[in-house]
């Protein structure tokens, strides 16, 4: 637990840096969701097969996973003061790592 307590400033900066990087990606994502809502498989496959779309999608998910790992860690620090905190932190890191890995693997297989 003590390890989490003297990394507060680094986490503070990393959370904000990832938020700033995500800003343009959020606009891009919302724009594309509106433009392609209800797309059939062929359309979705062609969209995801374009490298700039695959890269932007993977970037949003990877940076989102980075940001939400820190954010959820902050919530753990606030509310969990017993032995469960360590387990929840490991699970949190694991989930975020899998999410990021899935996005990169999907982008690689779709567009490259």
């Amino acid at each position: 637990m003590s390890q989490q307590h003297h990394r507060g400033t680094a986490d503070f900066i990393a959370l904000r840096a990832s938020a700033v990087i995500m800003l343009p990606l959020v606009v891009w994502l919302l724009w594309n969701i509106v433009a392609h809502a209800g797309a059939d498989y062929e359309t979705a496959r062609a969209w995801a097969g374009r490298p700039h779309n695959a890269v932007a999608m993977a970037l949003f998910i990877v940076i989102g996973a980075f940001h939400m790992r820190i954010g959820a860690g902050e919530i753990v620090t606030d509310y969990l003061h017993d032995g469960s905190a360590g387990v929840v932190r490991v699970l949190n890191s694991l989930v975020c790592l899998i999410v990021a890995g899935c996005a990169v693997a999907a982008a690689a297989s779709l567009a490259f």
Binding site: G64, A65, G71, I75, S109
Partner: peptide
């Protein structure tokens, strides 16, 4: 802000699933 952060945690998992489902 905290509640939507948690909701987006789920949403990002879903988004990754959706992207992977195309692949």
């Amino acid at each position: 802000h905290r509640a939507t952060g948690v909701a987006l945690y789920g949403g990002t998992i879903l988004l990754a699933l959706w992207f992977a489902s195309i692949a």
